[in-house]
């Protein structure tokens, strides 16, 4: 029982979904952790990445590489549309605009009117074939008790490879003078302006790069599932990404990775544990899968609250830095 629970949790923590969420959080960390931009619609970037890829391949029969480029370009366009009117205004305007835009996008792809393009509620499939053709893994079982098949191995490897590469990119950027300007904007954008920095331009660059990283997360997510449906992109995804970023340590390069692994380990472990308890009929009156999902989310919420009480800076964060945040 404990053993299944542990392996369930581990399977999820190192799997492609955790890698996708790590990517969402890497992008969000660039926005929020380093630039101070409040993006409450990271799931919107995930959506345009996922649909950009799957529409190009499944509907128009384009090659995989074109799908990847379309997905990323869609994130660039979304950033410009969202950022151009709001980045000159106070931070909360971007927050409202991004959360609204991500929901509008979800309704758009869900709408029956978009059936030909997005498959509306049923979504799209058959866009991942070429991706798995590239897999170097021979069919079979991998990672012992975790039981990954060849496809899962491949998408997991690519997912975490991207997390590593993009984290390294963020690390390089943040140690450069460009990163210094970004952090100065987070601290006080008027001070940055008074020193001759074009604040709007840097905010836009940050929004675009973080958004594209989110879109890449979306592509990994749907490549792993080999299908895409609108309701994968509920607003709660953004809040999971925020939770992951804070859990790992905001404004740290490895925080999103640590956060994603821990978050999915806890969430899946709790789900598995609670399912075990419910199935055993130990608690009278409680049955069914609905309850498992809800209760485990409540439990994760409680764990996050405890973490915030005892380690408010997250796993890898700097306590001193956090203290200065308030003053």
């Amino acid at each position: 029982m404990i053993e299944t629970l542990f392996f369930d949790a581990l399977r999820s923590a190192i799997g492609p979904t955790a890698a996708s969420y790590a990517l969402l959080a890497v992008g969000l960390n660039l926005h929020f952790g380093y630039t101070g931009l409040l993006n409450f619609g990271q799931v919107g970037y995930m959506l345009v990445g996922a649909y950009g890829l799957s529409i190009t391949v499944a509907v128009f029969g384009g090659p995989l590489w074109l799908g990847l480029i379309v997905g990323m370009l869609a994130a660039v366009v979304l950033s410009i549309i969202l950022g151009a009117p709001t980045l000159r205004l106070r931070a909360d305007y971007l927050a409202i605009t991004t959360i609204a835009a991500s929901e509008i996008l979800r309704f758009l792809v869900r709408n029956t009117g978009s059936d030909d393009l997005t498959g509306s509620v049923f979504g799209l499939r058959q866009f991942a074939g070429e991706f798995y053709d590239w897999s170097p893994f021979a069919p079979g079982e991998y990672l012992g008790p975790l039981g990954f098949n060849a496809n899962r191995m491949w998408v997991t490897l690519v997912g975490w490879g991207l997390v590593a590469a993009l984290s390294a990119m963020v690390w390089t950027l943040m140690r450069s003078p460009w990163g210094r300007v970004l952090r100065s904007i987070r601290e006080d954008e008027d001070a940055a302006r008074s020193l001759g920095k074009n604040v709007f331009l840097y905010k836009m660059q940050s929004l675009i790069i973080g958004g594209v990283i989110g879109a890449i997360g979306g592509m990994v997510f749907v490549l792993a599932l080999q299908n895409v449906t609108p309701d994968m992109f509920l607003p709660q995804v953004t809040f999971f990404a925020f939770a992951i970023m804070i859990l790992g340590g905001t404004s740290t390069v490895l925080g999103p990775t640590a956060g994603a692994v821990l978050f999915w380990f806890l969430l899946t472990g709790l789900q598995s544990g609670i399912r075990g308890v419910v199935d055993a009929g130990v608690i009278p009156g409680i049955t069914g899968g609905q309850v498992v999902g809800a209760v485990s989310l409540i439990a994760v919420g409680l764990l996050l609250m405890l973490l915030m009480v005892f380690r408010p800076q997250g796993i890898l964060g700097d306590r001193e830095e956090l203290r200065l945040d308030v003053s």
Binding site: M169, L173, S176, W178
Partner: peptide, 18 residues
């Protein structure tokens, strides 16, 4: 250091090449 003008590394692409 932020204050210095015309820093090459403040350009996004050059920032990637230390």
């Amino acid at each position: 250091m932020l204050g210095a003008s015309q820093q090459r590394g403040e350009h996004i692409l050059r920032a990637l090449l230390p």
